[in-house]
């Protein structure tokens, strides 16, 4: 095992034993939500971090997945795990269809399109009262059951979320670390040049959107079955801003960046609880300042510092790339 991957395994080990040391239910609740955010930011990262197209509509797939999974479980009695998987496939279809239209655009047009679709989906869900119960949301969504084990407590939900999050991160890592991932970066750095060697924007963006959509859908199902409630609140702009903040502060275009960002910004709101009214204005300030002062996020800073430590302790060891892979 090389030193480059050591921090990842340390983080994973800490995550695995965390519930042994944490007695607070509330703290565990935040950890469970952090797992959901990791799934979300990881998916958005493919499109926004690696391909470089900003989507302000990622929360749409969270909502669609949550509603689909909840409706399948409540109305049709589908087992929850299967319902979550089907919801993931449903969001894949949705992101494919939306992608067919949006990936004709780039840059600012693309951003506007994503907000337009997010608003349309929110209005449709809110107005289809017969199916979705409108703005009241869906209640009493059953918890997941795995091999007869009901996942209802905070700790079991935490482990369930952890498994899902680790799978998400691993798959995204494998994608990014492949030909496909290099094609993403090529499109981000110079689209015309990428086209000239046969890398098509529409095709690779679609891959990123579909994978991101799938994990967002699963995250939505996870959220709905964990909180037993879903409403169109999850498709509002404040969710987008939260996800975006996590992605930007952590470091877009890196794998561990969004993970760190998701963990940090799951807990920051709690730290700001004392000044609850100020929380959102502070978010806005953090977003503005961090993008301007630290456009690449925390990850490059951390990985450079880690590289220096490794070099001091064991000269000659393979150090992490300065870009923070």
């Amino acid at each position: 095992m090389n030193m480059k991957k050591l921090p990842v395994f340390v983080l994973l080990a800490v995550a695995a034993v965390l519930p042994l040391f944490v007695k607070s239910e509330y703290f565990m609740h935040i950890c469970v939500l952090a797992m959901m955010y990791i799934m979300l930011t990881q998916g958005l990262n493919l499109l926004t971090g690696y391909i470089g197209q900003l989507s302000l509509g990622h929360q749409t797939f969270l909502g669609l997945g949550g509603y689909a999974s909840a409706l399948l479980a409540i109305k049709l009695g589908v087992p929850v795990l299967l319902a979550m998987l089907l919801a993931g496939l449903f969001t894949v279809v949705c992101s494919f269809l939306i992608g067919l239209v949006t990936f004709r655009m780039r840059g600012s047009y693309f951003v506007i399109m994503t907000t337009a679709f997010a608003e349309i989906v929110r209005l449709v869900i809110n107005n289809s009262t017969a199916v979705t119960n409108g703005p009241m949301g869906l209640r009493e969504i059953p918890p997941p059951v795995i091999f007869g084990l009901i996942i209802k407590s905070k700790i079991s939900s935490y482990y369930f979320g952890l498994v899902l999050a680790v799978i998400t991160v691993f798959i995204c890592y494998r994608i990014v670390d492949s030909r496909t991932g290099r094609a993403f970066v090529a499109l981000r750095e110079h689209e015309a040049l990428a086209n000239s060697v046969g890398i098509s924007f529409a095709r690779y963006s679609m891959v990123a959107a579909v994978v991101g959509g799938f994990f967002a859908g699963i995250a939505g199902g996870f959220y709905a079955h964990y909180t037993h409630f879903i409403s169109t609140d999850v498709i509002t702009f404040s969710y987008t801003v939260t996800i975006l903040l996590m992605l930007i502060i952590g470091g877009k275009g890196t794998i561990m960046g969004p993970v760190l960002g998701a963990i940090i910004f799951s807990f920051v709101p709690e730290a700001l609880r004392a000044v609850d009214n100020l929380r959102l204005p502070i978010y806005g300030l953090i977003l503005m300042i961090s993008v301007l002062a630290m456009p690449k996020g925390l990850m490059p800073v951390l990985s450079r510092a880690y590289g220096r430590i490794v070099y001091k302790l064991a000269p000659g060891q393979k150090t992490p790339a300065a870009k923070g892979e």
């Binding site: 975006l244 204005p281 806005g284």
Partner: peptide, 27 residues
């Protein structure tokens, strides 16, 4: 500060400004 940066960055910064102004006024 936004004249020479990519359009995506300008969108993120102004989203931040929007959140800041809305919630400051709300407060």
């Amino acid at each position: 500060r936004l004249y020479e940066v990519p359009i995506v960055t300008t969108a993120i910064v102004t989203v931040g400004l929007s959140i800041f102004l809305q919630n400051s006024v709300f407060m």
